[in-house]
Design a protein around this nucleic acid. Structure first.
Lengths: 185, 185
DNA sequence: TTTTTGTTGCGCAATTCTTAG
DNA sequence: ACTAAGAATTGCGCAACAAAA
């Protein structure tokens, strides 16, 4: 069947969104208030040596399939089981739920519909990434500005502190003088 | 043919690096003094300077390939011609001079060597992106902290200013009193 | 010089958000 | 309120470079 897919190929199948790594977990999927982003002045945390190790990630490659080529699609079925060979023994047909879209959108890869969808998504992706880049840049700038302002404020504080000290000192002098004068009078 | 291939993946392939793209121009690839991550998106790396983009955003989709298949190498001819079909008519064999090192470039996609390279790169990519994510997060945090600190400093300044004012006022009072006393004496 | 590692834009597909009907 | 269609995000792998080794 031309149906397309069927593609059993996707031998590897590994990918499936491995847990570790990103885990967007929605922490910052998209802020309603886009403002900052990166910067890293990080004083010491620059990751001197082995960053990941300390942090915890190994970057060990997921399954590292080795299948040749890739034929159809790179295997996409979503996060599900760790996938072992015997899975086939356990489950007669992989019918569980990974078809979802297939039916819904019988995209045959050549269909104009498919191409249109793809193209639209590609555009959206570019747009989104551009936005992200801008946001990051803004945050960086913002951090720099804040750092700058911070410095200014600290200077100001220093000046004021000195001024207060001076005034106090002067006042105490006056106080003494006044006292003397009082006595003398 | 198990080989298959033809790996339609990355179907389009047109891309070939829009000229501008990279060209880091070395302005600020990475500062010797790592403090802000700076780097990363120097600014114009996206794609070319299509007029639309410059103005705002175009996101008009590049070439919108539509081709399928691709056979072995996905048209690798480096940044050169815009790539049109007739190129074949113009150039008998695509041998001109951009061969570099056939040996290395001639990875057959099935070769273990190729797979290993890919796998290593994939790992590197994950690592790099993770790093970027962390960096971004740090910058965000930093910006927040700075903002906070800024607020504190401003409060401090306010207090000091008031104090100076008070002292000044008090001093002027004393001055007057002293004067009177002087006169009285 | 060559090889390896790090970055980065891009397209794909899954998922999540939005929104029109 | 609900669902479906479309836009926005996100993780992933690929390829082209740049940067280290």
């Amino acid at each position: 069947m031309s149906m397309s897919d069927s593609s059993p190929s996707s031998i590897c199948m590994f990918s499936l969104h491995h847990p570790c790594s990103s885990s967007p977990d929605g922490t910052l999927p998209q802020d309603p208030m886009p403002q900052m982003d990166s910067g890293l002045y990080g004083q010491n945390m620059g990751f001197p040596k082995t960053p990941e190790q300390m942090m915890g990630l190994g970057y060990l490659a997921y399954p590292s399939c080795l299948n040749t080529s890739n034929s159809e699609r790179p295997a996409q079925q979503n996060h599900n089981a760790p996938q072992k060979d015997f899975s086939q023994f356990l489950l007669p047909p992989p019918v569980p739920a990974l078809r979802q879209s297939t039916q819904k959108r019988g995209l045959s890869k050549d269909s104009v519909e498919y191409r249109l969808r793809r193209e639209r998504n590609n555009i959206a992706v570019r747009k989104s990434r551009d936005k992200a880049r801008r946001r990051i840049q803004l945050t960086q700038q913002r951090a720099l500005q804040l750092q700058d302002e911070n410095h200014r404020l600290q200077m100001h504080i220093q000046r004021l502190s000195h001024e207060v000290d001076s005034l106090r000192h002067y006042l105490s002098q006056r106080h003494l003088q006044a006292k003397e004068q009082d006595d003398n009078c």
